[in-house]
């Protein structure tokens, strides 16, 4: 098992190099001059432009730029962005906010998705099941920016249950409303996936045998239906956490949350190569590690899967 984990962690190296190279190249290939864009309508003196270009190594060819970037990464020096703020600082501010938002959204979709999914699956074809199915379909069909604004208006402005925007002081309470919006779409998928696997496993032979042993209904459901049904759901949730950590540009935009999505969006608008690549590098690590955790969880849930071969 340890060997498997080590091998998976070693795989991070080529993945990391590949993705950063690709992203770096795409930023490099973006049309327009980032320095010129920085000054807007004004025309700065050539000496200023040259200084800035030299500072951000924009006067170097692509491979040199990428080499300098790699060197900086391994010396833990992410450099400064175009507003002369250290990139490491702004990442250190943005990531915890996004992490809080992502975890909250994940908990919401897991708890509600699995709970509703199990109830619907156990009572397939009944009123609760049909209602939940239709509602989940509506949730999937409505785009996030519509849901986000509606929630903001209803719960934030009219009912006043939560602050309509988050702003600088993001905490668990403030992030609850955006986390709901963010988690809602995946909630619908988790619900449908759980419902499908539960109603399939309900008819499994081993469930009938478990009942024949004299187990109570709750025990049959918890030990024999739920655990077996969770295997695909956990995979989906894990893959989803990576996506949520990438920052939700739309949701963070609507609720004005200073998270990764916001930062990334600004950096792309400004063609800020170093910031974009720094964010992406961290995201790659997050993705690889969450995927590894999901695979380990998977082996724990399903003993037939063995990695140490």
């Amino acid at each position: 098992m340890v060997r498997y984990i080590l091998r998976r962690l070693l795989q991070v190296i080529p993945v990391f190099l590949g993705t950063t190279l690709l992203v770096y190249y795409m930023v490099f290939a973006l049309p327009g001059d980032p320095i010129a864009a920085l000054f807007g309508e004004r025309q700065p003196p050539q000496s200023v432009i040259d200084t800035l270009r030299a500072q951000y190594n924009l006067d170097q060819p692509f491979w040199v730029q990428y080499g300098i970037f790699l060197k900086n990464i391994f010396t833990f020096n992410l450099g400064v962005d175009f507003t002369q703020q250290p990139i490491a600082d702004s990442l250190a501010r943005a990531f915890p906010v996004t992490a809080m938002l992502a975890i909250e959204a994940l908990i919401i979709q897991a708890v509600f998705g699995i709970a509703f999914g199990v109830f619907a699956g156990l009572r397939r074809g009944k009123l609760f099941d049909s209602t939940v199915l239709i509602v989940s379909l509506v949730v999937i069909a409505v785009p996030t920016f519509v849901l986000g604004f509606v929630f903001q208006l209803v719960f934030g402005v009219q009912l006043g249950w939560a602050k309509p925007t988050v702003g600088a002081n993001a905490d668990w309470g403030n992030l609850l409303l955006p986390a709901f919006v963010l988690g809602l779409v995946s909630f619908a998928y988790v619900l449908r996936l759980t419902r499908a696997t539960v109603s399939e496993n309900m008819n499994a032979d081993y469930v009938r045998t478990a009942t024949a042993k004299g187990l109570s209904r709750p025990r049959v459901i918890m030990a024999h239906i739920l655990r077996n049904s969770l295997i695909p759901v956990v995979t989906y949730l894990g893959a989803n956490l990576g996506g949520l950590m990438g920052g939700a540009i739309v949701t963070e935009g609507i609720f004005n949350i200073p998270g990764v999505g916001n930062k990334l969006f600004q950096a792309i608008q400004r063609s800020e190569g170093p910031t974009i690549v720094a964010i992406v590098s961290v995201l790659v690590l997050v993705f690889v590690i969450t995927n590894l955790l999901v695979d380990l969880l998977y082996a724990w849930l399903d003993p037939r899967i063995r990695y140490d071969q």
Binding site: Y206, A223, N228, D302
Partner: peptide, 8 residues
């Protein structure tokens, strides 16, 4: 198929 694959 009558033993649950995930339990000992």
């Amino acid at each position: 198929s009558n033993l649950n694959p995930v339990w000992k």
